[in-house]
């Protein structure tokens, strides 16, 4: 495994800036997740690290060694493609064995066979080994694609939304499994997703991308608790953070702020609360209840663990945990 360092990477396709001045340091053995919506430059970053794409400018280092002009095969990365990219004419077994048969790494038949079965077992595709790659369901294809990356021990694993087409249960299982594999192998993983739950559950650190700009890097907790912009605050957290006008907040601590962000769990139903609101809808989420409320000045959602005996249309009082309020200026940047 290796550490990967991207320095001032720029990449544009025609007039579209895919990445601007990207600086990223992925430590050896780190699970790094790039989070961002479609078109934020996540896949482009992966392709640049793998060597499939050349940056317009900037440097790429593996273990502090410049690899800008090193061919993909010699960078020794393994890549889980979003569109699976299985070899259609071969069986699942051959697809998994393919990277092990590379002339750059001489493995004997027995080693290959053992490794393929080990990975197939891990990903629960053992009974599909003799199937043709095209005779699989989407979820199975994705697991084979994941397996094809995991059979090797590369410098870095690059994963492009590898769990996106799995059903919820399997996704949850594989999330845990993947994190376990990563800690066991002390693997370096650069993982790309738009799913915040994947990001927060697996990542050692998260990088939030917005239109080719890396807006914030930090541990999941840092990103969640100390987002440096409304954009980042919105990307993490489910249900979403409430963004309100600063003027609507009673006794605001920061008079120059334009917006405030309040996490739904920091708003409570409170007899002594200072806001009178009306309940719009309630949703039971198991242990918690999601309540959306509205008044002339504020509207938003709150999350409560208490058993509430109020329903839609009821008037309640709410209180806000004022120490947890995040203040943002008129450029939607965090004020500290």
């Amino acid at each position: 495994m290796a550490s990967v360092h991207l320095e001032n990477i720029n990449k544009s396709f025609g007039s579209i800036n895919a990445l601007s001045n990207l600086n990223l340091e992925i430590k050896d053995g780190e699970f790094f997740v790039l989070l961002g919506p479609t078109g934020a430059g996540k896949t482009t970053t992966l392709r640049i690290v793998s060597g499939l794409e050349m940056p317009d400018s900037g440097n790429i280092f593996f273990n502090e060694e410049l690899v800008n002009n090193v061919q993909p095969a010699f960078r020794n990365t393994s890549y889980v493609f979003q569109q699976y990219s299985l070899y259609p004419h071969y069986s699942v077994y051959d697809n998994l064995a393919f990277p092990l048969r590379s002339p750059l790494r001489k493995s004997d038949k027995k080693t290959i066979d053992d490794r393929v079965h080990e990975i197939a077992k891990l990903l629960k595709i053992e009974n599909k080994l003799n199937n043709k790659a095209t005779q699989l369901s989407g979820g199975e294809m994705q697991r084979v694609s994941l397996g094809r990356a995991l059979v090797r021990d590369p410098n870095i694993y690059l994963m492009d939304e590898p769990l996106s087409s799995l059903d919820a249960k399997l996704r949850e299982e594989l999330r845990v499994e993947l994190k376990k594999i990563q800690t066991d192998l002390y693997a370096t993983i650069l993982y790309v997703t738009h799913d915040q739950i994947e990001a927060t559950t697996m990542a050692d650190r998260i990088g939030v991308l917005k239109e080719g700009l890396l807006t914030q890097v930090g541990t999941p907790q840092e990103i969640y608790e100390e987002p440096n912009s409304i954009y980042v605050a919105n990307r993490l957290g489910s249900p979403k953070i409430n963004i309100l006008d600063n003027k609507q907040i009673h006794n605001s601590q920061n008079s120059s702020a334009s917006y405030v962000g309040i996490r739904p769990e920091d708003i409570k139903i409170d007899q002594n609360g200072s806001y009178n609101v009306k309940i719009e809808t309630t949703e039971l989420l198991g242990a918690e209840t999601l309540v959306s409320f509205k008044s002339d000045t504020v509207n938003g959602i709150l999350l409560t663990q208490e058993n509430i005996n109020v329903g839609e249309g009821d008037n309640i009082k709410i209180g806000i945990n004022e120490t947890k309020i995040l203040y943002f200026d008129n450029n939607e940047q965090r004020m500290r």
Partner: peptide
């Protein structure tokens, strides 16, 4: 033949000859 097959093979460290034979 889609390009991404060759990209996958390239990352999987297949030689030109293997790419020809396999894809």
């Amino acid at each position: 033949i889609p390009d991404y097959l060759y990209e996958a093979a390239e990352v999987d460290r297949a030689s030109r000859w293997q790419q020809f034979i396999y894809i």
